[in-house]
Design a protein around this nucleic acid. Sequence first.
DNA 1: GTCTATACAACGATAGAC
DNA 2: GTCTATCGTTGTATAGAC
Lengths: 191, 191
Amino acid sequence: MTATKGDTRTRLLDTALGLFTVHGVEGTSLQMIADALGVTKAAVYYHFKTKDEITEAVAEPALRELSAILDHAATLKRHSAQVDYVIDGLVDLIVRNRMLVAVFCSDPGIARAVERSLHGEENVMTRLPAMLVPPDADEGAVVAAHVALAGVALAGGSPALMAMDDERLRRHLGDAVRRLLGRPRRRENLS
Amino acid sequence: MTATKGDTRTRLLDTALGLFTVHGVEGTSLQMIADALGVTKAAVYYHFKTKDEITEAVAEPALRELSAILDHAATLKRHSAQVDYVIDGLVDLIVRNRMLVAVFCSDPGIARAVERSLHGEENVMTRLPAMLVPPDADEGAVVAAHVALAGVALAGGSPALMAMDDERLRRHLGDAVRRLLGRPRRRENLS
DNA sequence: GTCTATACAACGATAGAC
DNA sequence: GTCTATCGTTGTATAGAC
């Protein structure tokens, strides 16, 4: 909203994300952000009332995208189509934001941000697993879904896999999730 | 070593773990630990030179156990036997330390501790995935192993699965990892 | 050896002047 | 919208009492 009002605010978020990826959220002080922007700590506080608000704002676009994926999946009729859509969307989202995911997965601040996530709706982190398991799923399937979600997020940001290019990582992660959920693998056109 | 020397030191670690599980590592100050023990901040500082040293010491027993599992697995001849042993041991270790895993997975301090992990040996976090994939594994298998490890650790500490009893969680997590690695499931005697 | 007292720089955060 | 000044608290550090 408010159209093109954010200039310094946008610069601030870009700078913060850059510093976060280098030093981590905890390792980045408001002073560092202010110095990098050429302003004072108090100037930063004008745009954001708290440090948590900054990390929240940095992560928001990705979370909003995830929420949109879930919303659209919910409109699909067949459950298998829903699962396919969510898997593809989630994997793509993670791969596209690798560094961001890597930084935020190992930081308690982002966990807080996700908990009271977007627009007060029901939490994204509870909608996700619920969407991946069929309505009549047994306990094992629920655990498998949690392993798949946690694993794909953390592995996607893993330093050991940073060298792999997006396309290959996307395919491998998708395969892993589908195997875990006991679903047939689709579109095996390449390789 | 040094036999039964640690009284306050042990109490301190117990207290710290308790506070960590409630407020998180970052949310627990040395002051809180000192107050809970009825001593001064400086007294805490006598036993540990830094806060990182405390989190490291709290996590050390579990990391040492994990290292022992890898050491013993390395002595087994068949690769499949190694994988089976590591999976069972890792899953059991995680389930037994659920809260600890949950707390430490979302904290950058523990990541630092794990990095320069135990006794200067080669890192546990690099030995683990290497042990799970066969020597001639393709790229997809490597990614799957990372997903399995990250997923089982994070899912094991997930609040959504806290209600599940140890035995069932252990079985489901083991099944998930084996399915992800494309291995046949063993000992399906119960259920 | 174990602790208290005290101090310090840096942190997140606030109030108010320009 | 940005500043200076200041607050309380944090992690870290030293000196010295018992």
